[in-house]
């Protein structure tokens, strides 16, 4: 077991998509990263927006999985559609909002979770093609991430969810650590994304064991359970958001500013909101009252 717990932080950072995102965010070119002796705070400051962007891109990849459209992420997963989809419906922002409001994960819970996840998943023998050539900056990123986690008692759930999807995504397809778009999960095909959810929903028995072994009662099953809950919730919420009025609702006037994408897609309320319908067809067999 001890042997299994040792894991490669470089591999981890790469697999959650941070390395790629940091590169895209220009973080790797920043002086602090290039010269590790510079104050780590600089990197920490730069890391936060990179993490946010990573979460946003991953949630975009998730949104179009549930409701594809004409956007680049839908194209990347091989399901381009001519009519609007989740990107046009604002679903990525809907998901980020929801995850932010759902609950922040306390660091004390997250640490064993991350350790356990990485342990179990790195055992799967994933070979990351670009890892060998990585510069030393990963060590700096690692330190910065540790620092960021230390300074905050909690980690935003969007980052956790994105890390989870990306980590599993790179297990499904190691080459997804690099490429176009901003996250490994977004680089998968529709079928590969489905495989990611199959892994999350039925975590390897090993993974469940490691997740729960770290925690005493009454926390038993809390982490593996949370994983299963999250796996389901991400899909349900993406579906709900895509077909709701979220993106075009003016909360002050409590009115729509445009027709919701989901209404157009489904044909709901063709002439806008109503107070009622002429849908009354009488009573079945003419019976309006029963007794006994």
């Amino acid at each position: 077991m001890d042997e299994a717990r040792t894991w490669d932080r470089r591999g981890f950072l790469t697999r959650i998509g941070l390395f790629g995102a940091a590169g895209a965010g220009g973080l790797l070119a920043a002086p602090a990263a290039a010269a590790p002796r510079e104050p780590i705070e600089d990197v920490v400051g730069l890391l936060r927006p990179v993490l946010d962007e990573l979460a946003r891109d991953t949630m975009t990849g998730l949104s179009v999985f549930v409701c594809p459209g004409p956007d680049a992420h839908s194209v990347a997963q091989g399901t381009r559609r001519s009519e609007p989809g989740a990107v046009e419906a604002g679903t990525p922002r809907f998901l980020l909002d929801a995850l932010n409001k759902f609950m922040p994960l306390p660091d004390e819970l997250l640490r064993p979770a991350v350790a356990a996840l990485v342990t179990a998943l790195s055992d799967a023998g994933v070979h990351l093609p670009i890892l060998d050539g990585l510069p030393n900056v990963v060590a700096t990123l690692d330190k910065a991430l540790a620092k960021l986690l230390q300074n905050n008692a909690t980690v935003p759930l969007p980052v956790v969810a994105a890390a989870l999807l990306n980590l599993v995504a790179t297990g499904v397809k190691p080459a997804a650590v690099a490429g176009p778009l901003g996250s490994p999960f977004s680089r998968l095909s529709f079928a590969e994304k489905a495989t990611v959810f199959s892994v999350i929903e039925a975590p390897l028995p090993d993974l469940v064991a490691v997740l729960d072994v770290h925690l005493p009662q009454p926390l038993k099953a809390s982490l593996s359970g949370l994983l299963k809950f999250l796996g389901g919730a991400l899909l349900e919420f993406a579906a709900f958001g895509s077909y709701s009025e979220f993106a075009v609702f003016d909360p002050v006037r409590r009115k729509l500013i445009a027709r919701p994408v989901g209404w157009t897609l489904s044909g709901y309320q063709p002439d806008g909101p109503v107070e009622g319908w002429d849908e009354f067809l009488g009573y079945y067999q003419g019976r309006q009252e029963v007794r006994g």
């Binding site: 495989t195 959810f197 199959s198 389901g232 349900e236 897609l265």
Partner: peptide, 22 residues
Amino acid sequence: PPALHAFAMNFSDSGIHGHYAN
């Protein structure tokens, strides 16, 4: 209505139709 319908059709213990059955 549509958002709840989409939610209802994505709430399953049997994976994703056509891909995996959990």
